[in-house]
Design a protein around this nucleic acid. Structure first.
Length: 617
RNA sequence: UGGGGAUUGGUGUAACGGUAGCACGAGUGACUCUGACUCACUUAGUCUAGGUUCAAAUCCUAGAUCCCCAACCA
């Protein structure tokens, strides 16, 4: 998205200011430096919204020849797990954001970092603040702190605010040593109990949490809060642009206060709103001032018909609405990947949307459009029939197989051709036949002729029905002069309006195909009733047994193709394990899970002008 | 309520105080061995009310609406 014209101007401006505003800054530095980071908490899988941030941060670094870090903001072990760390690394790489996991701050991009690796440094800084009387140990319970939070008119209070420095130092040491239970005390910054910005009313810096951490094990039982930790993380990594979402805007004063407090208590000169405060720290042997990154906020984007918070996505998994974080209907990056989306599609989506401070509702059609656009260029075409209707070709010589040439991708001549077998018994799509067809229906109907893609002109002679009146098969004839699907030579030259796909019944490869619909029926799930469960789509998953042309039997998990006239599909990478039905479900029984099945997922349908026509009436 | 943000066609996004443009959607048509793709045309917008100005999306004043914060989450 950084390549996009609209974004480049804005980011270009920021980067220019990054170099330092004065001539002195320019002279000292020569070139602007850009170093960004994506700082997820490993408490869930990444979703499509995170992709915006990843792409923004990485794209910025790439555009300006800077660096990009993946940094885990793992300061709350109660919610974090190694599984999430692993999935996030996988997803960030899949999206194409480069970082070197082995070389922190390496040549390409930046590196892979963990906030938890800085715990000792953060602790040391905290001790400094206590010594400067800028922090104190408070023994108020969470409840009491909340009660004493004050109002818009009344300031907050804490009886421990004036605790002697020595006492706070001793207690903080005890907290770290594990001598106190969870919730009994905290370290608080001494800022301004009367601030209209409640974030500044002596915010908590450390809480006691006797938890095992996925990275540091049981080394620590006190953990830093986000506001205290984040600026230090950015500082250690010498991040230039600390990009975060809008809800942190009123945390920015806190972010700055903490860094300034470490730097000696006098506010450093601001560089005018954008860019880091000073580059001098880089060249100094002194440890002060420490690097002061600039926090910059941008708006999230959320597609319609989706729920996008890790908390609610976790609930969907836990309640069995879906069976896994990577369910193809999930808005997680893993879900989109399994669904068949490409990184290019997700990139182009966010490039298209751009970066602003307006919380945008993204039309879901944009998401679908992005993947159609990319897959149209790269996906090879094949024929598969989702809902078969048997066709007997009465004038086809019994036992004869005609191998016909089919173009693999009309958008890409280099994709070549393949052979498709034609016989006297075929399957066509049920939707491609109508007994009483309107004039606008271009497909097969009694007495009408269509083209079988790459094969022959086919004419419907009669309809066979069972006792109940259901159509069981069609009796048809082909015109041998149309082999390859071309109009016969004069004098029988003619055009047919419709071309339909087909599969030879004798050669058809059966496969389970999962047809996904959106998980929710409301543009903004939960907007109506306050509970998104009320807007779940009970028909988010339909499973059919399709008949595919034989070439598809060789497809490997993850392969993406177009089923002609139907949409883009991919071979399931989840081994075909069962999915939830999209409504609140019991957990799966072990018998339900049949791994290694040959299963296809529908990524997205093709646009369908006829379906739209039908809907109109 | 106190604080912090935001508001341009249906959606998203541009526009030194100087012709409101682009993309997607929608509609119409052309093309077509995918009712796909592609192409052409059309559609429709500056939150409101005042003010400054030769000229306002842009500056000023007042208001409206929406989002976020008032966790020992991030």
């Amino acid at each position: 998205m950084i390549e996009a014209d609209n974004a480049s101007g804005k980011w270009g401006t920021w980067a220019a200011q990054d170099a330092g505003t004065g001539e002195a800054g320019q002279a000292r530095l020569g070139t602007p430096r850009v170093h960004t980071r994506f700082p997820p908490e490993p408490n869930g899988y990444l979703h499509i919204g995170h992709a915006k941030s990843i792409l923004l941060n990485y794209g910025l670094a790439k555009k300006y020849g800077g660096k990009f870090n993946l940094r885990f903001d793992d300061t709350n072990p109660a919610k974090e797990e190694q599984e999430y760390v692993d999935s996030i690394i996988r997803d960030v790489r899949w999206l194409g954001a480069e970082f070197d996991p082995n070389v922190p701050g390496g040549e390409y991009g930046g590196g892979l970092f963990f906030a938890s690796d800085y715990f000792q440094q953060m602790y040391d800084f905290a001790v400094e603040l206590i010594k400067k009387s800028k922090a104190y140990v408070c023994a108020l319970s969470a409840d009491e702190v909340s009660k004493r939070r004050g109002t818009t008119k009344e300031p907050a209070t804490s009886p421990f605010r004036d605790r002697p420095i020595e006492e706070s130092l001793r207690l903080f040491d005890e907290m770290r040593a594990g001598k106190h239970a969870n919730g009994t005390m905290t370290l608080r910054a001494k800022i301004d109990l009367a601030s209209p910005n409640f974030n500044l009313r002596d915010p908590v810096m450390y809480r006691i949490s006797h938890e095992v951490h996925h990275n540091t094990g049981d080394t620590w039982c006190i953990y830093p809060m986000y506001d205290w930790a984040h600026g230090i993380e950015d500082s250690i990594e010498q991040i230039t642009h600390s990009i975060c979402t809008l809800e942190f805007e009123d945390h920015r004063p806190l972010y700055d206060w903490f860094i300034d407090a470490i730097n000696g208590g006098t506010a450093l000169q601001s560089s005018g709103g954008c860019g880091p405060t000073k580059e001098t720290a880089l060249d100094s042997n002194s440890t002060r001032p420490i690097w002061h990154a600039q926090q910059i906020e941008f708006a999230k984007g959320i597609p319609t018909y989706t729920v996008l918070s890790k908390r609610n996505l976790l609930i969907m998994v836990q309640e069995g609405i879906v069976r896994s974080w990577d369910d193809p209907r999930m808005p997680t990056i893993a879900g989109f990947r399994r669904r068949g989306y490409t990184p290019e599609a997700i990139r182009s989506l966010w490039e298209d949307v751009g970066v602003t401070k307006y919380n945008a509702l993204i039309d879901y059609s944009r998401v679908e459009n992005a993947v159609r656009e990319h897959l149209n260029k790269v996906a090879p075409r094949y024929m598969a029939v989702l809902r078969p209707l048997k066709v007997v070709v009465e004038n086809w010589p019994a036992g004869t197989v005609d191998w016909l040439d089919a173009v693999n991708n009309p958008e890409d001549p280099s994709a070549g051709t393949r052979k498709v077998p034609f016989t006297g018994t075929l399957y066509i799509e049920q939707d491609d036949f109508m007994e009483d067809a309107p004039k606008k229906f271009f497909r097969l109907a009694p007495g009408r002729e269509v083209r079988l893609r790459w094969a022959y002109f086919l004419k419907c002679e009669s309809v066979v029905k069972d006792a109940a009146g259901n159509i069981t098969e069609l009796r048809c004839t082909i015109d041998p002069a149309t082999r390859g699907g071309n109009s016969p030579p004069p004098p029988n030259e003619r055009k047919v309006k419709g071309t339909i796909h087909w599969v030879s019944a004798d050669h058809a490869v059966p496969a389970e195909v999962r047809l996904f619909d959106r998980l929710f029926t409301a543009e903004q799930p939960g907007e109506r009733t306050g509970n998104w469960r009320d807007d779940l789509n009970p028909k988010s998953l339909e499973v059919v047994t399709a008949h595919m042309e034989p070439a598809l039997a060789a497809a490997k998990p993850g392969d993406r193709v177009q089923f002609e006239r139907l949409g883009y599909f991919c071979v399931d990478t989840g081994g075909g394990t069962a999915l939830g039905s999209g409504v609140v479900n019991p957990p799966p029984s072990s018998a339900e899970s049949r791994p290694n099945k040959f299963v296809w997922n529908r990524t997205v349908t093709l646009k369908d002008a006829w379906a739209k026509e039908v809907t109109k009436e």
